[in-house]
């Protein structure tokens, strides 16, 4: 199942770009979140506004899978506010790098060598995050929640589906820029549903694959999913003629390697603390996890802020605001590392 999920993610990651999504952005959770935030009016960048059906598909596909297997469980209550802010900073890190961890690998498998700095950062962030977890950093236990609280995040995505279908005048859809580039709605939605379903079943997540590599070595099942993802996306990029190796002139990339590294390090670190990258948070939100739902809400707000405050990087590089935002994000994670650390003595007293 993990192999299938990884392979399907790689296949759609390449093919959606071929079917109309921006180059190397067949699937990019952070870009899609920024697009969706703009569409509902959270930022005014007229080139970045579109409710991406793939996101809706991820959440609803996960919902269908969780319901069909009896795995839908309303749960939450673990540090909601830090999770909300962590979601926001996840998007900050991604926006400075230009892409989420999935897009990092899609860019890499299309020959974009500027991603190597981001990859090093992501791995570094995961390692630091693991050291934190080993040192007792924990946002606290989740609890089963009364009522059906876990349904509200999928419900919000149903509303987004209605909005993208009805297209009321208060929702913005870019007619130019990268948000104007998209695969046909039903294709995007279908791909999202399939990926969401498989990801819920398999628990596949790019960052978790890297995390498990450090925890379990080659025995980690998710690692094989990542390898399948890489294999399929490289083959796909070669087959579609999208493979152009090099550092320069790459689509949606910049040469500020230090900030690519730090942006992705922030993403890796937060992802380990949250138990998954932005994609995984959407999948968990679909299966009733309100904590992941808080992260998703933070991501949406972050999607608005990174555009409104010019935090997001462009091909010209990372803005001063982007650099400051990444450092603030790192400060945020460091503070939480201190505040949420269960120290050995305190644990022993309990």
């Amino acid at each position: 199942m993990v192999l299938l999920a990884g392979a399907v993610l790689g296949l759609f990651g390449v093919m959606l770009a071929d079917w109309g999504n921006p180059q190397n952005s067949g699937i990019c959770v952070s870009c899609f979140v920024e697009n969706t935030a703009g569409a509902v009016g959270l930022h005014a960048n007229a080139r970045m506004q579109y409710i991406r059906p793939e996101l809706i598909g991820f959440v609803l596909g996960s919902l269908v899978s969780a319901f069909s297997l009896g795995e839908f469980k309303s749960r939450g209550g673990s540090a909601p506010m830090p999770r909300f802010l962590a979601g926001l900073f996840l998007i900050v890190g991604c926006a400075v790098f230009i892409g989420c961890p999935i897009k990092l690998f899609l860019r890499l498998t299309a020959g974009d060598l500027t991603t190597l700095a981001g990859l090093a950062g992501l791995i570094g962030g995961v390692v630091v995050g693991l050291r934190g977890l080993a040192g007792g950093v924990d946002f606290g236990r989740q609890q089963k929640q009364v009522g059906t609280t876990g349904i509200w995040m999928p419900a919000m995505f149903v509303l987004l589906l209605v909005l993208v279908l009805v297209r009321p005048g208060f929702v913005y859809f870019s007619d130019r820029g990268s948000a104007a580039l998209h695969a046909p709605l039903l294709v995007s939605l279908g791909a999202g549903l399939v990926i969401g379903f498989l990801a819920q079943r398999s628990r596949f997540c790019v960052t978790a694959s890297i995390r498990d590599l450090f925890l379990m070595g080659r025995r980690a099942p998710l690692l094989w999913g990542l390898l399948a993802f890489l294999l399929v996306s490289v083959s796909g990029n070669l087959a579609t003629g999208s493979f152009r190796p090099g550092f320069y002139g790459q689509p949606g990339a910049h040469l500020d390697f230090v900030w690519s590294f730090l942006g992705m390090a922030l993403v890796g670190w937060i992802s380990v603390l949250l138990g998954g990258c932005p994609f995984r948070q959407l999948i968990k939100a679909g299966e009733g996890d309100s904590d992941a739902g808080m992260v998703v809400l933070g991501m949406l707000v972050g999607g608005g802020l990174v555009q409104s405050w010019e935090i997001a990087a462009t091909a010209a590089g990372v803005s001063l605001f982007g650099k400051v935002a990444v450092l603030v994000g790192i400060l945020f994670v460091l503070l939480n590392t201190l505040l949420f650390r269960e120290r050995p003595a305190a644990a022993a007293d309990r």
Partner: peptide, 16 residues
Amino acid sequence: LKTLYYLQSRLAGGCE
């Protein structure tokens, strides 16, 4: 050259 690479990158598309 750096400026040309910037323009090349913008022409290549991508999400930004």
